[in-house]
């Protein structure tokens, strides 16, 4: 159960839109430190939008509500400041950045972060050991960020950044989508490591229950048409696996 008195992330009555089309409707969601939450729902429910709004993507306009993270109102903070405050968003489709070697990027994102601004040798050692841990060819470290990487390699790079930055809370947006079995097991391993080594807090966005098999889930939130329509404990996952989202879609239709 979420610790209602002291959540790490508290999304309070958030409504958000893009180009005047409202996507999120009065969303409330609390995540306590150290917990694993899952945000589920059918395709197009607004789950990814929720993750991106939490991270502060400028494409979306927050029409009402606020986002409190680690006791601070971050609703008006830029994404870089949210990141430096300890929030992390793993992308469903990580972008490519030609011209920037992965190592240079990793160094840039750790520079100036308390506790992470390592000495040079230590930094190299750290990213190499993370690459090994994630079964990632070290040669990728010298390649341009994302350019020519397979879907699986891109997701491994997301996991590498998660473990390198050690955020207080990570939102993983469909990290499991489009992965083969091997890549999926590496990603699961990365999530487990994050929990173990950083006492990590996770908000996992997915419509697939498979990635949750090896995780101890504390709370499940179901989103349909931009609204949270149901919440419960981990037992909901088996129910959704069995019966799908139809039951919730009906509830959403009633709420409109």
């Amino acid at each position: 159960m979420a610790n209602e008195t002291n959540p790490l992330l508290s999304i309070q009555g958030i409504s958000a839109s893009v180009e005047e089309k409202q996507i999120l409707h009065n969303v409330n969601l609390d995540v306590a430190p150290g917990e694993v939450h899952v945000l589920m729902g059918p395709n197009g429910a607004g789950k990814s939008t929720m993750g991106h709004v939490a991270m502060g993507e400028p494409t979306y306009t927050v029409d009402s509500g606020k986002i409190i993270f680690d006791g601070q109102d971050i609703t008006d903070l830029t994404p870089d400041k949210r990141s430096r405050a300890g929030l992390f968003l793993s992308f469903q489709a990580p972008v490519e950045v030609p011209g920037v070697p992965l190592t240079s990027f990793l160094r840039a994102i750790t520079t100036g972060r308390e506790g992470l601004d390592m000495k040079r040798k230590e930094f190299r050692k750290r990213i190499r050991s993370l690459a090994d841990e994630l079964d990632m060819d070290r040669a990728y470290l010298d390649r341009e960020l994302g350019v020519g990487f397979s879907g699986g390699e891109k997701k491994k790079v997301e996991m590498l950044q998660l473990l390198l930055l050690q955020p207080k809370l990570a939102i993983l947006d469909e990290t499991d989508s489009g992965l083969d079995v091997d890549a999926l097991s590496v990603v699961s391993h990365g999530m487990k490591l994050y929990q173990e080594t950083c006492n990590g807090t996770l908000l996992i966005i997915t419509h697939n229950t498979r990635i949750l098999e090896h995780l101890s889930v504390d709370r499940v939130h179901v989103m349909v048409k931009g609204r949270i329509v149901a919440e419960g404990d981990a037992s909901m996952i088996a129910d959704i696996d069995q019966n799908g989202f139809e039951q919730f879609e009906q509830a959403a239709a009633n709420a409109e």
Partner: peptide, 9 residues
């Protein structure tokens, strides 16, 4: 946005 989400202004 990707770079910002990793802390870069």
């Amino acid at each position: 946005f990707y770079m910002a989400s990793r802390g870069l202004s």
